[in-house]
């Protein structure tokens, strides 16, 4: 396997280099997406299959579609986007020297670091019995370090409000003049994306046997399904937002916070859960999180306030 790993690592480094240096923006984006998939592959080799799926689904998949859609806007606007002049050879040389030094330093550090094996993660693995879920990462995300997850939902919401403030929706309607040679991209995207979503759906079903599943992966699947509906013209962005949709967007963060605050006087700590109720609470929180995450990611994709079913 050493040969396979080395080859994979080499491919990753080469793709990163190509993504940064290739002239054409479109090729840079495609390289970035392939890089994401290769990273996902390498992370399965490092015992992190759940992260591999998150990277493939969110990092490469969802972000990839978003990058390609934005590329269309950039392309249609013409070549000159008022960017500054290319950096001088001096800057280039300095950046090259700096990055080689940085990379070397990191490589040396990663090879010489004396890892402490007595760590919080080991404690987390030992305390799984008290967490209410069996899957260790889910236990950390929803119980031991649930506060991080709660705040992270705030980041998602803020990014969405920012995108809404910008009023720069992506137009996904396959208009008459937009089909055929003008946009060979969409069908390709759908074909690339469908198996990914299916793969992740399968993973979630499988994970559900051991734990309530992963809220992030589940949310990503939801968003992925929504994105495909948008690309297929079945669902569209809408400037108007319904109260229901907004309520669903904040469902995760509200449920998480309110449960934590209500139980705080009883349990003596924020986000502490009574022993008998841990499992049902975890499931409730997880499902509301998945729903909110999925919808937020979908709206970040359409860049609009709301959603509506497009006229058939």
């Amino acid at each position: 396997m050493m040969v396979f790993d080395s080859l994979l690592a080499l491919i990753i480094a080469a793709l990163a280099w190509r993504c940064v240096t290739v002239r054409d923006l479109f090729q840079a984006i495609v390289t970035f997406i392939v890089l994401g998939l290769m990273l996902a592959l390498s992370w399965t080799r490092l015992d992190a299959p759940d992260l591999a799926l998150a990277e493939a689904g969110i990092g490469a998949g969802l972000l990839g579609v978003l990058l390609l859609s934005t590329w269309r806007v950039v392309r249609d606007a013409g070549p000159d986007q008022g960017e500054g002049p290319p950096p001088s050879p001096w800057v280039r040389t300095a950046a090259a020297v700096g990055s080689i030094a940085l990379g070397t330093a990191f490589a040396v550090v990663l090879h010489t670091v004396e890892v402490d094996s007595d760590r919080a993660g080991g404690l987390a693995l030992e305390s799984l019995g008290e967490a209410g879920v069996e899957q260790p990462v889910t236990a950390v995300l929803l119980n031991f370090r649930s506060y991080d997850t709660l705040l992270e939902l705030g980041v998602l919401l803020m990014a969405l409000i920012g995108a809404v403030l910008l009023r720069s929706p992506l137009i996904h309607r396959p208009a008459a003049e937009d089909t055929g040679t003008e946009s060979p991209l969409l069908p390709v995207l759908v074909t690339v994306f469908t198996p990914l979503v299916l793969l992740m759906g399968t993973f979630l079903v499988w994970a559900g046997a051991h734990s309530p599943g992963g809220a992030f992966q589940g949310g990503a699947v939801l968003a992925g399904a929504g994105v495909m509906l948008v690309l297929g013209g079945r669902l569209g962005g809408d400037a108007q937002v319904s109260l229901l949709l907004r309520a669903l967007l904040i469902l995760g963060v509200s449920v998480f916070t309110v449960i934590g605050l209500l139980l705080m006087p009883l349990e003596g700590a924020f986000m502490a859960y009574p022993e008998g109720l841990v499992y049902p609470l975890m499931v409730t929180i997880e499902f509301s999180l998945a729903l909110s995450i999925g919808l937020t990611l979908l709206l970040l994709f359409t860049g609009t306030n709301g959603l509506r079913g497009a006229p058939a």
């Binding site: 015992d47 993660g121 992030f216």
Partner: peptide, 30 residues
């Protein structure tokens, strides 16, 4: 077993990076 704490950190990091990037792309389109 693999340490779940860095895994949770990466999952959080990916979601943050993707949402910030999505916001950045909206800025570019605007």
């Amino acid at each position: 077993d693999a340490d779940p704490v860095p895994h949770a950190m990466v999952l959080t990091g990916i979601v943050i990076a993707v949402s910030a990037t999505a916001f950045g792309l909206a800025l570019i389109r605007r």
